[in-house]
Design a protein around this nucleic acid. Sequence first.
DNA 1: AGCCAGATGTCCT
DNA 2: GGACATCTGGCTA
Length: 232
Amino acid sequence: MLGWVLEHETAGGVVAAELTEVEAYLGEADPASHAFRGRTARNAVMYGPPGHAYVYFTYGMHFCVNVTCQPAGAASAVLLRAGRIVAGESLARRRRASRRAAAPVAEPPAPVPAGGPPAAGPAAAAQRAAEPPPAEPDQAAAAVPIPFRDLARGPARLCQALAIGREQNGADLFDPASPLRIRPPAGPAGPPLAISAGPRVGVTLGADTRWRFWIAGDPTVSVYRPAKRRPR
DNA sequence: AGCCAGATGTCCT
DNA sequence: GGACATCTGGCTA
């Protein structure tokens, strides 16, 4: 999946990210997996068919997205940890900059054009005009814009840049008609990617399993942080 | 490099 | 009732 492109089309436009970092989770045999203790309401999508988005909410404020990857009944998923924005940078930037502000970026109501997909031209211009306005006056964000590399550098940042939340849980990523979808890299295949591997981030059980994979040397790969030990 | 707050869902006892 | 989470951003040193 490294080098593949995850894209989300909303009323505000399309934001796409080329995946640069992913992390594998098995099912009930993997102590770090959300399916370790069996099926629950939250992880139900993990038990469904492959190629669907398993979105979960954590730390009271963040979403993370996984791709299910084994046949229905086998709970397994790949966490999408980071990407490089390849389309919709300005919209991604607005969504990310607004994190500091209290309110999330308001997506405009989906306009239902009478006919045909929105394309270039006046219609597209009108849609752009309906995109979320710049966030609240945020002096810091305005003075120091988020570095490009940080727009989707980390699983929750990726979700925010692409506006992935509860509504996308269960989305069929391999359906081209799905607003949230994944596709192979466009254009001619280049040389094989240099891939590095290491332990997964933020997990306590199964911390020694090296199932985090990333494009070697890519600046959009997140910074490794070992699981925080908590006082008992 | 390390500490901490934030804010809520989930699943444990 | 309570521990803690597939995290981020801001701060201190």
